[in-house]
Design a protein around this nucleic acid. Structure first.
Lengths: 225, 225
DNA sequence: TCCCCTGGGACTGTATTCAGTATTCAGTGG
DNA sequence: CCACTGAATACTGAATACAGTCCCAGGGGA
């Protein structure tokens, strides 16, 4: 007598709601001017307000949403200063991560990362979206090699904040491939096992990313903000 | 004709519950074996389960609580590896923070920090608790000097995680003053304006803290865990 | 005596209801 | 036509009600 399990189909509704909403934000379905209202969302997801509310509050805590003055939540937009803060935080997390990866993982970790870089950068799609996908995979792989869970969750949170702010839409206009070669250099630094050097390289790499970003934002928004 | 604002008298109940619970954890009123049950807490705080639940979930998200297998929440205890992860994350955040403080704040920031260090370390109480209070104030001041909000919130979260795990109770048995002199050195590094050097100094300082910690844990727990 | 298995208690997760507050808008007096 | 008022509206936060899960103890049968 054998039956299939039908249970774990469903995790907590609140979590599912979180995934849905975050997914919408990351996909860009939720624009900066959209208002997310508990009742509306609940109706759309066909659940009650309670789990929706929980999901929204969590997103707010992660800095992705903020409460709109008129009620409801909306995307949290970032000032130029905050974008810089974000990149600096990334530099902190990823710099430490690569340092640990280098010290602990050494040559093997370097080889693994080099493989990831080659795979990601060799993918067929050459549009902006594909590029950012690849970029994310590479950076995340580095943080994974650190073996430190908290750094990884911090990385994910920071990355989501960036994506949700459509940071990457802004970057569309500038030369993306400019920093592509860096990634292999990073992998080599890990392979060499020199922690501080790898950390410096990563700090520089992220700083480059920031410059690219600022440049793109200037192009897009003009001098304002 | 002037009137005073009477607005913000009362923040959200959930937030108040959060403060209460976190406070209890930090003060040590909540032991590692206590179970936090929504209904009980709600009764004690004389509010309904809804805001209590919100507070507990937030604490869980911050890694301070975890759901107990038998129901309810309890303190999240850390394995030795996780303690190390925590310190490494601190090194990431505080290392980057001091680097920024040095680059941006330079001499003035260094002077401000030196003043904080002297004040904190010159306080009357010489017991363990006072020491940790002072230590926290110093480290937090450094992160504040970075001017980066996200680094600061990350610092607070990481610090609370450490405190709630009674990390510091463990350290009671070892020589605390060993790393006291470091703090002035850190302030000097900021004053010198050499970012990378300051960062390295902080990384080393935090690593020292980890060693102290591990030592204390070994004394206290023996080889286990 | 030991093992099922069954019923109840303890909790949580979700839905629903209630209450309060801010915002908008229509109406009215100047 | 403008300024103000008061009511309707649109939301949220909190309380309460409901449903389901998990564990455990206690009883009946082998």
């Amino acid at each position: 007598m054998t039956f299939q399990s039908i249970k774990p189909l469903r995790k907590r509704l609140a979590e599912e709601a979180y995934d849905q909403i975050l997914g919408g934000v990351l996909r860009g379905d939720v624009g900066p001017e959209d208002r997310l209202v508990q009742e509306k969302l609940a109706a759309e997801l066909e659940i009650s307000r309670t789990p929706v509310r929980e999901a929204l509050l969590r997103l707010e805590g992660e800095g992705i949403l903020e409460t709109a003055p008129t009620g409801g939540f909306r995307l949290r937009t970032l000032s130029r200063d905050e974008v810089q803060d974000l990149y600096e935080a990334r530099a902190a997390v990823e710099g430490q991560a690569i340092r640990l990866a280098a010290v602990r993982g050494g040559a093997e970790a370097g080889a693994r990362l080099a493989a990831v870089v080659r795979e990601a950068e060799g993918r067929p799609g050459r549009d902006v979206h594909a590029y950012f996908e690849a970029n994310r995979d590479i950076h995340r792989a580095i943080v994974e090699e650190s073996g430190n869970r908290w750094l990884l969750t911090q990385f994910d949170t920071l990355w989501n904040r960036g994506v949700s702010f459509r940071l990457f839409a802004a970057i569309e206009t500038v030369d993306l491939s400019r920093c592509l070669g860096d990634h292999l250099t990073l992998a080599e630094a890990v392979a060499a096992g020199d922690g501080p050097a790898a950390q410096e390289a990563m700090q520089a790499h992220v700083a480059d990313g920031l410059n690219l970003q600022v440049e793109a934002m200037r192009d897009q928004w003009g001098g304002a903000d």
